[in-house]
Design a protein around this nucleic acid. Structure first.
Lengths: 203, 203
DNA sequence: TTTACTTTTGACCAATTGGTTAAACTTATT
DNA sequence: AATAAGTTTAACCAATTGGTCAAAAGTAAA
C-alpha cells in the first residue's frame, strides 16, 4: 500500500463518515461522498466494493466513538463519586464533538437491527467491571440500592440525550439561540454529576 | 368528503406513519406505503400531492405524540413530587407504545433542521407553567436550586433515552433478551421518579 | 525505454423511484 | 337512464442511483 493510496482511503472514510452520520445510510449518495472526498465515484467502489461495505466501516467507527473509553478512569484510585464526575464531564465533551452520532446509531439500529446489532459482537463491550463496582458501593451502603444497569443507563441518558436532541431543545427552551444552548450544555458538565450523586447518595 | 374517502385517507396516513417512523423519510418508498395501505400508489398522490406533503403530515403527528400532554397532571391539586411520579409513569408508557418516535424525530430534525424546526412553531408548545412551578419550588426551599430547563431535560432524558436506544441497551445489558429488557423498562416507571426526587429534594 | 502493476477516470447501464395521465369504475343527482 | 362528480387503477415517464468496465494516467523495476 503506497502512501497516496493510504491518503485516498483515509479521505474516503472521512468523507463517508461526515455524510453517512449526518444523513444516514438511505439519505447519503455515493456521488456526494465522492465529491466530499474530492475523487471520482468509481474510486469508492475500487476501495470499498459497495455502499454497504463503506457504510459498515463508518458504522463501526461510530460505535467505537460512542461506546468506548467511557471507563478509562475506572481503574484509577479515585472515589466512586469522583469517577462519576470525571466520566460525565468527559462523555459530554465527547458527544458534543460528535453530536450526530447518537441519532445516527439509534436510527440505523432501528432500521436494520438484525444486520447491525450483530456488528456489536465484534467490539465485545465489557461492563462487568463497572457493574461490579456499583454493586460493591450498594453493599457497602455508600449509595442507595440500585441495579447497576439502571444507574449506568441513567448516567448515559443524562449525558447523551440533551445533545442528541439538540435541535428540539435549542428551539423549545432557547428560541433557537445557539449560544444559550451551548451554555446550557456547558453547565451540565458539572451539574449532571451532582444530580446523579444526589440521587444515589445515602443520607 | 364521503365516508369511504375518509377511510382511505385515514388508511393512507396510518400506513405512512408506520413506514415513515420506522424507516425515515429517505428509507421509505411510496410503493411500500401504498402496499401497507392496500391501495394503488397513484392514490397517495391523489390525496397527498407529494412524498414531502405526506411526510409533513406524519411528522406533525409524531411531534404531537411526542411533545404534548406531558403536563396533563400539572394543574391538578397534587404535590410537586407526586406530579413527577405521575408524569414519569405516563410518559414512559407513552413512549413505550411509540418507541420509534424519538429516533425518528431526532434523525429527521438533524437531516433537515431548517424545514422541520419551523414546523414546531405551529404547535406552540408552552412550558411557562411548569417552569414557573419549578422556580416556585426552588424559592420555597422544597428542592435544591436548579434551572427549570435542566430539570425538565433531565426528566425527559431519563424517560425517553432508554426506550429510544432500545436495540443497544437490550443487546449490551440483556444479551438481546426482550423480556429482560421489558422488565427493565417496567421497573423504571417507578424508579426513575424516585431517582429524580432524590436528586432534587432538600435534605 | 519497455514492461508490469496499481490507481484514477469518464462513459455507460440496469434498476429503482417519485410522479403523471388518461381511462375505468363508483357514487350521487337530475 | 343519463349526467356529472369524485375515486381508483394500470401504464408510462424522466430522473436518479449504485454499480461496472475498459481505457488512461501514474509508478516502479528491468
Amino acid at each position: 500500500m503506497t502512501e497516496k493510496n493510504q491518503n485516498t482511503e483515509t479521505r474516503i472514510l472521512e468523507a463517508a463518515k461526515e455524510i453517512f452520520i449526518k444523513k444516514g445510510m438511505d439519505g447519503s449518495r455515493m456521488q456526494e461522498i465522492a465529491d466530499e472526498a474530492g475523487i471520482n465515484k468509481s474510486l469508492l467502489h475500487y476501495y470499498y466494493r459497495s455502499k454497504d461495505k463503506l457504510f459498515e466501516a463508518v458504522f463501526k467507527i461510530a460505535i467505537i466513538t460512542f461506546a468506548p473509553k467511557l471507563f478509562k478512569n475506572l481503574n484509577k484510585d479515585l472515589s466512586f463519586f469522583t469517577k462519576i464526575e470525571l466520566f460525565v464531564e468527559n462523555y459530554i465533551s465527547l458527544i458534543k464533538k460528535n453530536p450526530h452520532i447518537p441519532g445516527f446509531i439509534i436510527h440505523e439500529l432501528g432500521r436494520n437491527p438484525k444486520g447491525l446489532v450483530g456488528m456489536l459482537q465484534n467490539l465485545n463491550i465489557d461492563l462487568s467491571g463497572i457493574k461490579q463496582q456499583i454493586s460493591n458501593e450498594v453493599e457497602a451502603g455508600n449509595i442507595i440500592p440500585i441495579k447497576p444497569e439502571q444507574l449506568i443507563v441513567n448516567i448515559i441518558a443524562l449525558c447523551v440525550f440533551p445533545i442528541g436532541a439538540k435541535p428540539i431543545i435549542q428551539y423549545i427552551f432557547f428560541e433557537d439561540n445557539k449560544k444559550e444552548y451551548n451554555k446550557f450544555i456547558e453547565v451540565r458538565k458539572k451539574e449532571v454529576s451532582q444530580f446523579i450523586i444526589n440521587a444515589i447518595r445515602r443520607k
